[in-house]
């Protein structure tokens, strides 16, 4: 019983992180149908930015989240307007995916050159505190990671639901022609969406840095995870990403606990393939019209 509870708690913590890391991917996919294969590398850039801030200025990783988000928002906006949009205009959506893959390769190489391919981790002074609830131990690091992820996801849901920018983004996602007819500058909105996506990816990176060690080649893992989360939960909504992420976290910890530590990835993809075949609209079932 204790084991099961502990597995569930660990799975939820991991899942919160997956959700936050995937929401940006899901937004871009939902709003402009672009599959951003450089998403994982943006997550890692967030980790490394937070790492630099912690090492040089001694800023606590949780406090560095807003700084990382602002920096990556700018990066995302410029990246979309300067490159992705051009690629979509000049060729096809599938080709734009290749561009993002190329960018991922480039940035990964840059990260390796700057930070070496070794694993890095961020360990603030409170990293080794933990507390015990009944039979379960919870690290302070993990619980604060989960809390930060949930807070940020709620924040994004509020932004999307109630601000002008959020409304415009949702309108463009639903019908970009209609939105444009109503006076929305669609390209600007695409840029904003990419900015928001990169900002949240960066935030998840900063949080991931305190939970897990990271190195540049991990980026593929985070991109693929984001895809699985989106497929499980449904595209373009924070609630979908949350459900997908938590499920994925639970599945991967439960699999490594019950079957063996080598199998979480295989299980994850098995579920992904089955989900695509049985319920391509995701569990919440929104906006997956393009799949069939």
């Amino acid at each position: 019983m204790t084991l099961i509870l502990q597995t569930i708690v660990d799975g939820l913590v991991l899942g919160g992180l997956y959700s936050l890391a995937a929401i940006g991917f899901s937004l871009i996919f939902g709003v402009m149908n672009v599959v951003n294969l450089s998403h994982g590398i943006i997550v890692l850039i967030g980790s490394y930015l937070s790492y630099i801030l912690w090492r040089t200025l001694g800023i606590d990783p949780l406090l560095s989240i807003p700084l990382v988000m602002v920096a990556l928002f700018g990066f995302g906006y410029v990246y979309q307007r300067g490159l992705i949009q051009l690629a979509v205009d000049r060729s096809s959506l599938l080709a734009s995916m290749l561009v993002t893959f190329g960018v991922a390769l480039m940035l990964r190489n840059v990260l390796v050159l700057i930070f070496s391919p070794d694993f890095k981790s961020i360990t603030p002074s409170w990293a080794f505190n933990f507390f015990v609830i009944g039979p379960i131990t919870v690290d302070l690091v993990r619980i604060s990671a989960l809390a930060a992820s949930l807070v940020l996801l709620c924040l994004l849901a509020l932004v999307l639901g109630y601000t002008h920018m959020g409304r415009v983004i949702r309108a463009t996602a639903q019908q970009d022609l209609a939105a444009r007819l109503c006076g929305v500058n669609a390209r600007h909105v695409y840029g904003l969406t990419f900015g928001v996506s990169a900002a949240f990816a960066g935030a998840s990176g900063a949080i991931l840095g305190i939970v897990l060690p990271f190195s540049p080649p991990d980026e593929a893992h985070w991109t693929i995870n984001a895809f699985v989360v989106v497929t499980l939960g449904g595209v373009g909504s924070p609630s979908g990403a949350l459900i997908g992420g938590l499920l994925l976290g639970l599945i991967s910890t439960a699999t490594s606990q019950a079957i063996g530590p080598a199998f979480p990835n295989a299980m994850m993809f098995l579920i992904l393939v089955i989900m695509l075949l049985v319920r391509p609209a995701g569990l919440l079932g929104n906006a997956f019209s393009g799949s069939r």
Partner: peptide, 23 residues
């Protein structure tokens, strides 16, 4: 499945097969 969903499902097939073969 069509388009990107087919692409990713195939990626999944390759991953599952590779991992099973490995483990």
């Amino acid at each position: 499945l069509r388009g990107i969903y087919f692409a990713i499902a195939m990626l999944g097939v390759a991953q599952v097969l590779g991992e099973l073969n490995n483990s």
